[in-house]
């Protein structure tokens, strides 16, 4: 594995494609996070809210996205992690997680991070500032 500190601006981290989103994924996240908003787990509640079906917690996708950085833990840590939730994630969507180095200033690496669905539509987008020791 390349060291994160050795990346050049324009380099990307190895992207990750998730398994199709399943109901059990969202039930697990509801239990682990304590976010039991029923639009994420119960079809009828999602429909009552005007949605075509249940949608993933935005924080589930944001949580997943951070794993692009996990294996670099000896080199530094995520100092800033900011996300805009851009689109909804539905059951069976296939999400791909991406990060590209945009800028580096001394010990701070700024990545553009992105999660897209199977139609390459961004579902969330933001920035990670990775601080190296």
């Amino acid at each position: 594995m390349t060291k994160i500190a050795e990346l050049f601006v324009g380099d990307a981290l190895k992207e990750i494609q998730l398994e199709p989103v399943s109901r059990i994924d969202l039930i697990k996240y509801a239990g682990a996070s304590g976010d039991f908003n029923p639009i994420h787990t119960i079809d009828e509640e999602a429909k009552n809210a005007g949605l075509p079906g249940i949608i993933a917690h935005g924080m589930w996708t944001m949580g997943n996205l951070a794993k692009l950085f996990t294996s670099y833990y000896e080199e530094g840590f995520i100092e800033e992690y900011s996300i805009r939730f851009r689109g909804m994630v539905f059951l069976n969507d296939v999400i791909t997680l991406k990060a590209e180095l945009k800028d580096r200033q001394n010990d701070r690496l700024t990545f553009e991070v992105l999660a897209v669905n199977q139609d390459q539509k961004p579902v969330l987008k933001g920035e990670v500032v990775y601080k190296v020791y």
């Binding site: 944001m62 800033e80 900011s82």
Partner: peptide
């Protein structure tokens, strides 16, 4: 109340893990 709220943005800042 939770119902009907939309999460637009989320930002974390860490001093350390």
């Amino acid at each position: 109340p939770n119902k009907g709220l939309i999460h637009g943005e989320q930002i974390y800042h860490y001093e350390r893990p």
